[in-house]
Design a protein around this nucleic acid. Structure first.
Lengths: 238, 238
DNA sequence: AAGTGGTCTAGACCACAGC
DNA sequence: CTGTGGTCTAGACCACTTA
């Protein structure tokens, strides 16, 4: 049935076969037969079978659940830009999300990129906030904020959610966005979970540095991860 | 050195270690030591080592070349979006050699988004150019350009490659970028092929509208698809 | 021919889910 | 407990590149 051939390895043939069968005979939520059973059926080692399934996982066709099985995912997603524009996030309006939940608040020591971007000494105290912003009840982006503790005045950080920039304003700080860089990647596991998305859809990664309008010193370094299918960054140039 | 622990498999630890080392000691184009050598060094099986490298490949950090080795990829190019920025200028500024190949040149009738963006009547003639731009011999992005024929003067479009904006300038047109939107998607098959990338790595989609500086009329509507692993868009806000 | 990555097998044990 | 996927080892051979 399966033939070893150059350029068409067994695991690929298996992936193709399974993909066909999935489209023909399976529906979303169905589980595939156990790996060992499939391996026996194709007369290959379980490792080879697994590699075949890996292809389908990467493709976003199926999903592995430890201890339970391999499950067929619902059909391909629509990546049309028209759909995305409904949820368009304006770059300038960033940080003004309608709902903002605080996931984490810790004090860490500045190091690497964070120290460099914030223009801090290594080891200087930094407040690390992790926020999740949703629009219309649907999670849109996760943002890691890094704030230099020493530049926040004597006030302890009591931010609990809502607009972070509004909170900072209350401390007499007015953050001004100076630079952003944008790139696209596939999400880390944690982010995929928070954003309730599959690991095979891209996310937009926006890195931003905000400076205090008064002192001109860096006041916030932020790394935002947007669900790309719900986001379109608009950049207007005057 | 490496410790077996739940939730932190060896291959992941290896990936993390290698990533660190790559950032510290390697530069683009460098090759990693052979797989067997690395496996010995970490005292793991070559399969386990390979799975670690797989992580880095997925991450876009390194690239495998059969029979030659594993090579470190160059970091993303920083592509800046600003008023006058053009592709060629961007890369020249980075000191990189670039190349622009014309893939297609057709005349079509304006419709839908194109007509709307270019502020044309439905059915008005539009020149559709498809270009592939490479940097250092490696494909970076595919761009679809839509030019309103009637605004190009009497000149037939004789553009054959190279800088498109330089060519337009020769026609007495100076395009100014007015708006861009950015989003991330998985590539269409054709684009993935042209960009020599996997269909599961995201691309950055940048939609741009350029207006003629003199008349203020839309002169170019462009839809660019960048390999996200080689691109970082910089947005500077004044 | 030698060196590199690519594929496959065989067998083992672990971790998680559900009965 | 049993059944599932997850990780790791050991060894083999193939395919591609370079010299």
């Amino acid at each position: 049935m399966l033939i070893r051939k150059q350029g068409n390895p067994l695991y690929k043939q298996i992936a193709d076969l399974l993909e066909q069968e999935i489209h023909q005979f399976y529906k979303a939520e169905d589980s595939l037969p156990p790996e060992q059973e499939l391996a026996d059926r194709f007369s290959v080692n379980r490792h080879t079978l697994r590699k075949g399934i890996d292809q389908l996982v990467t493709k976003g066709l199926v999903e592995r659940v430890h201890g339970r099985g391999v499950f067929v995912l619902s059909g391909p997603l629509d990546y049309s830009i028209g759909k995305a524009s409904r949820f368009s996030a304006n770059l300038v309006a960033l940080g003004k999300g309608s709902d903002c939940r605080l996931l984490r608040k810790v004090e860490i020591k500045a190091q690497g990129n964070i120290a460099k971007s914030l223009e801090l000494e290594l080891g200087a105290p930094v407040i690390w906030l992790e926020t999740l912003r949703s629009v219309e009840e649907k999670p849109l982006c996760v943002i890691s904020h890094y704030l230099p503790k020493q530049r926040l005045g004597e006030n302890p950080i009591e931010y609990q959610g809502g607009s972070l920039h509004a909170y900072l304003k209350g401390l007499g700080i007015k953050p001004i966005r100076k630079m952003s860089t944008v790139t696209a990647v596939l999400p880390m596991d944690d982010d995929a979970t928070l954003l309730v998305m599959s690991s095979y859809q891209p996310i937009l990664r926006v890195k931003t540095l905000n400076r205090d309008e008064v002192t001109g010193l860096p006041i916030e370094y932020a790394l935002a991860r947007f669900r790309a299918d719900r986001t379109q960054l608009s950049i207007n140039i005057d």
